[in-house]
Amino acid sequence: MARWGMVIDLNRCTACQGCVVACHQENNVPPSNAKLAGERRSIRWIDMMPMYEGEYPHTSVSLLPMMCQHCEHPPCIKVCPVGATFFSESEGIVGQVYPRCIGCRYCTNACPYTVRQFNWYEPEVPDSYRDGTNPDVSVRYKGVVEKCTFCNHRLMEARDAASAEGRDLLPGEYVPACVEACPTKAMAFGDLENPEAEVSKLARSKRAFRLMEDLGTEPKVYYLREGEGK
């Protein structure tokens, strides 16, 4: 049993968007184009969300990397009529089975964090990109919903290797692509069930907050507030 979660230290994040591109590359997210962007239909598994406060000249902005929060009580899975999205009891990750998805988009509407993306069009991928496809991740097509999966393919590969060698998962053996890419090491990732893990300690920090906590979704992505203070 594990509860995989993430802590993002906003003091360390510099909004370089390395996480965004690393995620898209790892997960075979198709390249967007001007038309999709104009319709706000680009697929982004992780995105920088600006939160403005104050009026000029006392403006302040926070930039939060936003991805699927992998809630403990996800609203999205409750509305899926076909079981295409599910909550993994053993890992705490909200996953997707693309061929089951019928494209009704109930889940996309139900998600309060608006992190689910629907493939409105057939993804246009040049032939030359094919060889660069990551074989560990499904390639999606028109009519299905996709979202961040905490790179659970990496988790499965790691668990496979661990069980073949008759051992447990080592700390740091499983990190999603975004966490790996972050150049300022702003993202910590691990098992929130393990009280000694770095994520657990950071999640208990006074600076820690989650988004829309009052909704009761119990998201597993924590943010550490910017500014001074321990």
Partner: peptide
């Protein structure tokens, strides 16, 4: 071990059609 957005996109130059 980290990469900014550009480095992570460098494969798209290799595979540029």
């Amino acid at each position: 071990g980290g990469l900014c957005a550009r480095g992570a996109a460098s494969l798209q130059l290799y595979y540029d059609p």
